[in-house]
C-alpha cells in the first residue's frame, strides 16, 4: 500500500494511507485528507490508485490537481495534467509538503525481465 506523509521541517508529522481508489485532498471537511491551511484549496487534488493494465499485481498511483489556486507540485514542478507518482516523490499541496511512499515499489526488480 502507498501513503502520503506530511513533512514539517523534513520531519514526518502525519501519515495518510492511500487505501481507496480515489483519495481527495483539500481544505474542506468532505475531503479524505483534510489540510486546514490557507494555501490549500477547498478541493485541491485527487490521488487515484489504478491497477496497471499491463503488469499484473502492480498498482500505479496518479495525482491530479483540481484547478487549485496555489498549485500541486511533484518534486518542485507544478503539475498540469494527471501525473504518475513514484515512491519517494516530494508532493507539495499549496505550501504543504508530503513524501509519497509506495512500499511495494521498492520490491520491484530493477533489471530487465520478461512478462510471461
Amino acid at each position: 500500500m502507498a501513503s502520503l506523509s506530511q513533512l514539517v521541517d523534513s520531519v514526518v508529522v502525519t501519515t495518510f494511507d492511500i487505501d481507496q481508489p480515489e483519495v481527495s485532498v483539500g481544505r474542506r471537511a468532505d475531503n479524505d485528507i483534510r489540510i486546514d491551511e490557507i494555501s490549500v484549496s477547498g478541493h485541491h487534488a485527487v490521488i487515484e490508485s489504478v491497477p496497471n493494465a499491463y503488469l499484473e499485481g502492480t498498482v500505479d498511483y496518479y495525482i491530479t490537481d483540481q484547478s487549485s489556486t496555489n498549485g500541486t507540485f511533484v518534486n518542485d514542478l507544478r503539475i498540469s495534467g494527471r501525473q504518475r507518482l513514484n515512491s519517494q516523490d516530494l508532493v507539495r499541496i499549496g505550501w504543504n509538503e508530503f513524501r509519497f511512499v509506495d512500499e511495494d515499489e521498492n520490491a520491484m526488480e530493477k533489471t530487465a525481465y520478461i512478462l510471461d
Binding site: V50, Y54, L55, T58, D60, Y62, G81, Q83, R84, N86, S87, E105, M108, K110, T111, A112, Y113, I114, L115, D116
Partner: peptide
Amino acid sequence: SIREQDAPNVPFRNVLTRALGAA
C-alpha cells in the same frame, strides 16, 4: 497513462511485454 518524459522514472521501465524465451 504517462508522458514520454516520465518514462525513465518509472520503476518497471525495463519490463518487457514480449521477448524471445517467453511464450
